[in-house]
């Protein structure tokens, strides 16, 4: 299992007919069991890239090699749940073969058990995100795509959800690609960090982190963060990436 990405360019035409370059050269590779993190400022084209990687957008220059038949689990920035199906039905719909034991374990980790019968309209954003996560994990994906899964959650909740994601990712060998503008999330969750420039996006640096997620202490995370900031600021722009 390996993901090989080489996107030479992606242009986008807006409603007024003007053409914009969104991606100007992004190449990286990811192995099974690795968490790759795309870190870049808001609006740099990260979501566009994820759409390409998820196979939703084929209109680009370059190539994306996904393992044949790989099951893709995705958590979009908005949870994208079916409002007319309950939490459990939302999960079971994409994973009809998942057995009860595994689902219970998943709901247990994400603290969703008491919400199984609720409809998405009755959930807070944090809960809805967790349902979207449960859905992505329920299919036992080979390739997991997470688009800003912690954005607009308060600090404590984001930290808890981050731990839950780490637990789930470590639980099975899956290629994970996380997109974030938050340097802290990147330093805590990633195995390899790909730093992106502002639009049009290029990979500015490819940083592997050798220490396993669980073993990273506060000092090390602070060091990784300052390294990221330095590289981003020392790069082409003076913009803050956080």
């Amino acid at each position: 299992m390996r993901l090989d990405v080489d996107i030479a360019s992606k242009k986008f035409r807006n409603a007024a007919g003007e053409q914009h370059d969104v991606i100007a050269g992004v190449a990286f590779a990811l192995d099974a069991g690795e968490v790759g993190v795309l870190v870049g400022p808001s609006g740099c084209g990260k979501s566009t890239m994820l759409r390409i990687l998820a196979g939703l957008d084929h209109d680009f220059q370059g190539r994306v090699e996904r393992p044949a038949g790989a099951r893709i689990g995705i958590v979009f920035q908005e949870p994208r749940l079916l409002p007319w199906r309950s939490v459990e039905e939302n999960v079971r719909l994409v994973a009809p073969l998942a057995d009860e034991t595994k689902l219970s374990a998943l709901f247990e980790i994400l603290e969703l058990n008491e919400h199984r019968k609720h409809f998405p309209g009755e959930l807070s954003l944090g809960l809805a995100r967790r349902v979207a996560l449960a859905r992505a994990f329920a299919i036992e994906p080979d390739f997991l795509i997470l688009d800003e899964p912690l954005a607009s959650l308060d600090g404590a909740l984001a930290a808890r959800l981050r731990d839950q994601i780490a637990m789930l990712v470590d639980g099975r060998s899956v290629m994970t690609l996380l997109v974030t503008h938050d340097v802290d999330d990147a330093a805590r969750l990633g195995d390899r960090l790909f730093l992106l420039s502002p639009r049009p996006a290029r990979v500015v640096a490819d940083l592997p982190i050798r220490t396993p997620r669980r073993a990273r202490g506060d000092a090390e995370i602070a060091a990784i963060k300052s390294d990221i900031m330095q590289r981003i600021n020392g790069g082409l722009t003076g913009r803050d990436a956080s």
């Binding site: 998820a54 196979g55 939703l56 995705i74 994208r80 079916l82």
Partner: peptide
Amino acid sequence: AALDEMATVFALPRSR
């Protein structure tokens, strides 16, 4: 369209 995309990525069969 967002839900359509979700169904596409999760490879839901057409009937479902």
